[in-house]
Amino acid sequence: MGLLDYFVSSRPKTTAGNASVAKERLQILVAHDRVARDKPSYLPQLQQEILAVIRKYVEVDMDAVSVTYEQEESHEVLELNIILPESAAARGV
């Protein structure tokens, strides 16, 4: 490596700040992983089956059913949210 190269390579680089990008990405990734980890493993299946039942009666989208799970101090909350299409609601299925 020539002297000139040394000057160039030891200067603050365009790559500086890479570590902070890495850290930010990691914080998001890890937060995601941790949420998923604490959920009961039956959730996706539960969601599927509920969707199948609803669809027997009402034509709903794949994403019409959402199941959320939250861990509180002393108990767990399973929240089920179903969005019915407007027409179905009007018909009072």
């Binding site: 680089k13 790559t15 500086a16 700040g17 890479n18 570590a19 902070s20 850290k23 990691l26 890890v30």
Partner: peptide, 16 residues
């Protein structure tokens, strides 16, 4: 590389 900001520091990893 940590000093150059190219690599996660021990504090970064600890924080996570």
């Amino acid at each position: 590389r940590v000093a150059n900001g190219e690599m996660l520091s021990v504090d970064d990893v600890q924080e996570i």
